[in-house]
Simulated scan of single mutants.
Amino acid sequence: MIARLGRRELIRAGLGAALLPGLRGLAFAGPATAHAPLMVLVFLRGGMDSLHFLSPADDAAFVEMRAAELRTAADGAQAGHRLDAHRGIDFRLHREATGLAEIWRDRRLALWPAAGLPEPTRSHFEAQSLMATGRGRSREARGGGWLGAWAAALGQDVLAGPFALAGQGGLPPELAGAARALSLPALSGGLALPGGRIGALAIEALHAEGQDAVSRAARAAIGDMRALDALLPRDGEGRITPYRPANGADYAGVGGFGAALATVAQAAKSHPGLVAAQVDLGGWDTHEGQGWRLPGLVRTLSRGLAALDADLAGLPRRWCVLVASEFGRRLRANGSGGTDHGRAGTVMAFGRGGALGGHFGAWPGLSRDALEDGVDLAVAEDYRAVFRRVMEDLAGRSVV
Results as ranks from 00 to 15, higher is better:
M1C: 12
A3D: 13
L5A: 12
E9I: 04
E9H: 12
R12I: 11
L15I: 09
L15V: 11
G30M: 02
A34N: 14
H35L: 13
M39E: 02
S50N: 04
S55H: 01
S55N: 03
P56E: 05
P56D: 01
D58F: 07
D59K: 02
A61L: 09
E64G: 09
R71I: 00
A73D: 15
D75Q: 14
D75Y: 08
A77P: 15
Q78S: 13
A79N: 09
D84Y: 13
D84V: 08
D84L: 12
R87S: 13
D90A: 13
R95C: 02
A101M: 04
E102A: 15
R105L: 07
D106R: 15
R107W: 09
L109F: 02
G116T: 06
E119G: 12
T121F: 06
S123P: 14
F125E: 11
Q128R: 13
G143A: 12
G143S: 08
G144E: 00
G145V: 00
A151C: 08
A153Q: 04
L154P: 01
V158F: 07
V158S: 14
L159T: 14
P162H: 06
A164W: 06
L165M: 03
L171N: 02
P172K: 09
P173F: 07
A181L: 08
L182S: 04
P185G: 04
P185Y: 08
A186H: 14
L187K: 03
G189N: 13
A192M: 12
L193H: 08
G195I: 11
G196N: 06
L201P: 03
I203A: 14
A205T: 12
L206H: 15
H207D: 09
A208Y: 08
E209R: 15
Q211N: 13
V214K: 12
A217P: 07
A218W: 10
A220F: 02
A227Y: 01
L231A: 12
L232E: 05
G236E: 11
E237P: 03
E237F: 07
N247G: 00
G248D: 09
Y251M: 03
A252F: 06
A252C: 06
F257K: 02
A260I: 07
A268K: 02
L274M: 04
V275W: 00
A277G: 10
Q278L: 13
L281H: 11
W284S: 08
G289Y: 00
G289A: 10
T300D: 11
R303C: 06
A307Q: 06
L308K: 04
D309G: 04
L315T: 03
P316Y: 05
R317G: 04
W319D: 00
G328E: 01
L331H: 03
R332F: 05
A333F: 00
G335D: 15
S336M: 12
G342V: 00
F350T: 01
G353N: 03
G354A: 10
G358P: 01
G365F: 05
G365N: 07
G365H: 05
A370P: 06
V375Q: 15
D376N: 14
L377D: 04
V379W: 07
E381L: 03
D382A: 10
D382C: 06
M391S: 08
L394H: 04
A395R: 10
